[in-house]
Each structure stands twice: as C-alpha cells, then as structure tokens.
Nucleic acid binder design. Structure first.
Lengths: 212, 212, 212, 212
DNA sequence: CATGAATGAGGTTTCATTCAT
DNA sequence: TATGAATGAAACCTCATTCAT
C-alpha cells in the first residue's frame, strides 16, 4: 500500500523554470487529449506529443500513466478544495443562508473556472487510481464544512458529519450534469441559485433554531 | 451517427433461454471484472473467461466491446429509471413530503439493489460511450419527475425542468460517495433520510403554497 | 516466490499438433536469434518474426520473455540430464574406469548433439531466471551420479556429494571452452578423452580400493 | 574490427587521483547493480546513480555501455590471471603435486577474493562483448600453465596445450557452482581440496614419469 | 453455433546516448 | 569538467477482433 502510494506520486518535484513549464504543458495536454479523445484513448505518447515533448520526458516526471492522471486530478481538485476552504473560513459565524451561499457558490464557481478540465477529469476520478485522490480531497472539504457549520449563528447542528457529507456531495451531481451538457451561463446561474436555495432549506430544516 | 447507433446496439436480441442465460452471465462477468480489475483492465477475453464462454461467443452477442459496455450500463440504468418512474406514477397528487420521499427513496433504493454493479459502472458511465446512455435515461427520470411535480397537491412549481434536474442529479453525488466508501447499511439509511429531508425542504422552499 | 515460479512456467501446454509445431518453431527461433544476435539483442518480437509467427502467438504460450528462455533452457538441459541419467543407470556395478567413461562421455556427447543450442544457451543460463533451472537440473545429474558411485565395483567413496558435484561440474568448463571456440571434431575427441582420463584418475585417487 | 576494438576500450586512461576514484566507484557500482538487479536491468543510469556520479561523467570515461562492461570484466579477470601467472612462475621446477596445488589453489583463491564480482560477472562474460575478453585472458593463463608444465620435475607431458586447456577450464565449473550456490567456506575448502586432488591425479595419469 | 488460436497494431515503459548549461 | 534533462528508438506486453475448425 505504501509502495503503491509512492508509485502514484510524481517522480521528481520540478524546481527549475523550464521543468515547471514542461510539467504544466503535460498537465494541459492531458486535459486536452482527455477532451478530444476520451479516457479510453488517452495514451502517454499522445499526451507527450500534444505537450510537445518526448515520451521519455513525460516519464521523467511521472513514473507511470496512473501517477500522471493522479497528479492532474489532484491539481484540479486541490484548487476546488482550496476555494471551498477559503469560503468556509470566510463565512464563519454567519447565519445559515450566508453559509449555504458561500460554500455552494464557491464549489460551483470553482468547478466552472476550468469547465473543460472539470469535465475531462470526471472519467479519471472514477478510475481505480482516482478514487483515492477524490476521497482524500473530498474529506478536506467536508472537514472545513464541519468546522464552519459548528460556528453557524442561527442554527445548531447534530450529526455534523452526515450533514457536511450530504451538503458537499449533493452539489456534484448537478454540476456534473451541467458540465456534460455544456450548459450555457444562464442555465448555470439558474441551477446555481437553486442549489443555494436547496442547501439553505436543507440546513434550516435539519438544524435547531438558536438564539442570536 | 446512424452508423454509430447501430454499432452500439447488441447484435441480436436473445430470445432463447440458453441465449438469455449466456447474456446474463456475460453481464455479470463484466461487472465482476470491472470490480476486480478496474475499467483499464477490462478486456473482452477476461469477461468471456469469467462468464465461462469463449470470446467468439461473446462477439456473437455484441459486435464490439463498446456495445457490451453500453448494454450493461443500459440494463442497470433502465432498472433504476423504471423504479423511479414507477414511484413517480404512484405518488401523483400527493403533497411535497410524500413526493420527495417516494422519488428520492426510489432512486437510492434502486442504486443499492445491486451496489456492486452501481459502483462498477460508474467509471463506464463517464466514458465516451456511456454519456449517451446516461443522458438518455437520465432524461426519462426527469420527465417523469416533471409530470409528477405538476400534480403536487400542496405546492405549485415554476421552472419545472430546473427543479427536476436539480432534484434528480443532486442525489447522485451522495449515493456515489456511499458506494465508493462501501458504507454500512446504517450510514446509508441515515444519508437516505437526510436526502429525503433535503428534497422536501427544497421543494417546499421553491414551490408556491397551494390550497388543498 | 511461488508466484514467480508460476510466472516462469509456460502459459499453456500445447496439445494440438499445430500448437506443438508452433512452440517448436519458437524454441528453434530463440536459439537462432541468440546465436545470430546475442543475448542482449534477443527480443520477443525478433524471436516471433524468426519463428514465422506473431508476437501475440508467442505470448499465448509464454507469459513473458523469461518464461520463454527458461523453457528453452529447460528443454535443452533436460535432454542432457536424461542422457546422463541413462548412462548412470546403465553403468551400475561397473568399475571406476567404466563409470567415468560412461558418465563423462554421456555428458560431453549430449552437449555436442546440438552444439549451437549449447553455445547459445550459455548466456541464458547465467541470467537471473536461468540459474534456478540450471540448479534444479544439475542436481538431478548429481543425484544420479551419487547413486551410481555407490555401486562402483572396485572403489568405495566417502563424501559422495562432493565427489559427484566436482565430477559433474568440472566437465562443464572444458565443454564450454570447446563450444565458444567452435573446436573441430578432432580437438573435441582429444579433450573428451582427457576428461575421461581425468575423471578416472580422480575417482581412483579419491576412492578406497575395494575387493571385487 | 579495428573500429570495434577502439569502441570497447575505455575513453581515457585516468591518471589523476580523483579520476581513478571515480572509475573505481563506477566499477563497484556495476557489480552491485549486476547483483541486485541482474544483467537485464543493468543500465548506465543505474550504475551512475549507484556510483554517485552523473550519467554524463560515466560517459566521459567509457564511450558506451559495452566498453564499461568489458573494462569491469577485464579488471576482474586480469587479477585472476595475474594471480595464476604468479603461481605458475613460483612453481617452476616443482613436482606434479606442488604444481597442481599451486595453480588450482591460485585460481580458486583468486575467484573467491571478490566472490560477489565473480558471481556477477559470469553473465557478462557470456555476452557477446565478453567472450573476446575471456578468450584473451584465458589464453594467457593457459600459456603460463604450458610453460610451467614443461618444467615439471617428475613428469613429462605430451599434448601440453590440451592438458593446460583441460586443467584450467575444468576448475571453472565447480567454482561457478560454488559461487551461485553461495557456498559456505567449509564447502569451498572441501571442493578446493578435491580439485587439487583431481588435478594431481590427472597430471600423474597423463604425464610420463621422469627420473628426478 | 461455439471455440480459441492467431493476428498485429498499439500501449506502456526503459534506456543508451547527447548536449546545453 | 560535470551535470542531468531531453530524446526517441525499441523493448515488452496486451487486447479487440477474426476465422478455420
């Protein structure tokens, strides 16, 4: 298990400017190939070609295909999680409505910063190597959400873990739906508003009113 | 497009008992290989071996690998959709709480009838060939939900499409989370209850009260 | 270890006539490539091409390159060992001179039945996977030799294991020397005679005279 | 041919202390990688890494991989040959028993000075590039042995070349057997004694008694 | 109809070697 | 002079698919 963990980690951390650029190019190429050809046709050589480097170079940064995919996925989810964590930190002590708007909004917005990447990586997340990354980062979001809910000004919550689990995961389905349908901004905005409303209603119904 | 449609459909509709049994065995083997080895290592020969038939036989029922996957996915989702449609039909004219309980409950329960299959097919659904099947069947659920919501006894809804979209997709994330974590029945039950609560609260908050 | 053992074993035992012929062709091709290009340039594709089959076919009979090499080596050494065992069985109860002549002669002769194969497989035997095969089969020769020496009519031996080890291995060096030099038959014959003489002298000097 | 000769020779003869140390480190690293990973997985980068230098540095001392292997092999065999030659020179004019003890003992002992290297280089010696080195140095041993045998005090030999060939090569098999089995010192000593006995008996039986 | 051996394109990965820094 | 990133040919191996039996 520890061994596998290692195998999924990048081979070396790029420090030089050129290396960083190379890795970035490989990441972008991975997303593009994923979008153009699908997960089934994603090959390391195709990624390398698209990135404008040789296969050997790719393998100097990633010990195998899985580690590349894990890294791309991690980079993407890390941004989303960071965004959510930041929103959670900023919304502390606020009432339910503000919390729901902040967290759900942050998640949805983060997913649509790079909609192509979000869409492309969905298949990767479901693969064998991806679930671990997803699980790890999802947990971080949920922890931040737990902490936040505990500070809510107008509601007290029991079963914090369940609530934060439901809240954070329930947004994923609609977002994914919008992504695959390549929905236009107006539709996205409408759904986003509904999700905030749903989260607010949910938290109100499940929390115990608390004196301000 | 027409060509592709054809290629993804099973080669012949098995009517004889033996054929049916064979196809069933192939379907089950597909799920098992998917769970044991992952989507990347799913090969037609492995499926055939697991099913106890030869590769040639497999190719007599499915013209290619994609059609097999599409068929397995379709069979699975069809059951879920059927279950949801049935629940929708049965809940017509009921108040919001009953509708939410019926629809969300039906969806969650249907997904956990064969949890292994649900979990295994997640990766397949994200693949190129899978999105079409998913889109088609998801739409059916949403249409049924639309029809149902229009008959709700205590609330009237604007934006029916958006609501049914949000309602049906928001359940997927939590369910998927439970599946990959292989959560125990108690946890599943707790989340299920929360999802019903969330759906109810959402529908109440988004619908306009209506005299009974 | 047990796993590895399995990995070195052929994938399926060929039973049909065509399969047998195919495997035989692969074996021969391996020897030829080994002789033409050396162990370093022995690739599975080159072997397949030389054998007139596709790489896929090769891999249907051998799960990997090592198992192919192990099988070729085993087939070759098995013949040598069989020859030595037969000679050992036939020389039971004979005096030292006859035993030495029989065993050493059998070994040398067996090695020169297919001199090309003997020469080619030398490098293979030294490789990682080869030593196990060599060790196993060498042991069989030594056991047969032990049994034989115990029946010697004019000498009794102490340290049977050491003697049979020395006797069986000491022939290998000269034979290998002749093989790489591609010595002519006259030279081979001369060395063969010397080896018989050496074995006889050794056994006489190390054994205790015994009344007939 | 001349071209090849050049390609197999080290690029520059290191005279400075640091260079010498570097080359030494590369030699040792080669042996270690050979033992740890086998000939198949011996790569220049692995050797360089193990030696604590960069690949570029390695290539400054050796124009290619083969030349490195040839050099390591040569260094090792040269020590063995030197040891044998020295023993041959020292045993001149002695009787058969002393000659056998000196030569066989020198060879065996030399091989066990660095048993790891001896074992590791066995596969290398069998490779295409190695046979030339082996042949050249083996010949030197045999010539020294020829010269020595001609001065034997109690026996006169016909067919000096054949005898020295048999004598020098027949020791290799047993030594190799001990090396791969990683035999303990007691076993090595026992076999060593037997080899001396065998050589003595052989020389006595094949030589013509000569008045002292 | 069923079988499973054969195919060979293509995927992943390694590695000898070079060359800009 | 030393470094090690980059290269890309080539190695090993898999797998969707076909077809003779």
């Amino acid at each position: 298990m520890a061994r596998r963990e290692t195998a999924l980690r990048p081979r070396k951390t790029p420090v030089q400017a050129r290396s960083l650029h190379t890795v970035e190019a490989i990441f972008d190429a991975t997303i593009q190939v994923l979008l153009d050809q699908g997960a089934e046709r994603l090959s390391t050589s195709r990624v390398a070609e698209r990135a404008g480097v040789s296969v050997g170079t790719l393998y100097q940064y990633f010990p195998n295909k899985q580690s590349l995919l894990a890294a791309v996925l991690e980079r993407h989810l890390l941004r989303v999680v960071a965004s959510v964590e930041q929103a959670c930190a900023a919304a502390k002590g606020q009432p339910v409505a503000a919390i729901a708007a902040a967290v759900v909004g942050a998640f949805v917005d983060a997913k649509f910063v790079e909609p192509a990447a979000s869409r492309a990586l969905y298949a990767v997340a479901a693969e064998v190597g991806g679930t671990e990354v997803v699980a790890r980062l999802t947990q971080r979001s949920q922890l931040a959400l737990c902490d936040l809910l505990a500070t809510c000004s107008d509601r007290a919550f029991d079963q914090l873990m369940t609530i934060s689990f439901v809240l954070s995961t329930s947004v994923m389905g609609p977002v994914q739906g919008l992504l695959v349908a390549q929905a236009p901004p107006t539709v996205i905005a409408a759904v986003r508003a509904h999700l905030v409303a749903m989260a607010t209603a949910y938290l109100r119904s499940v929390g115990v009113r608390r004196a301000p």
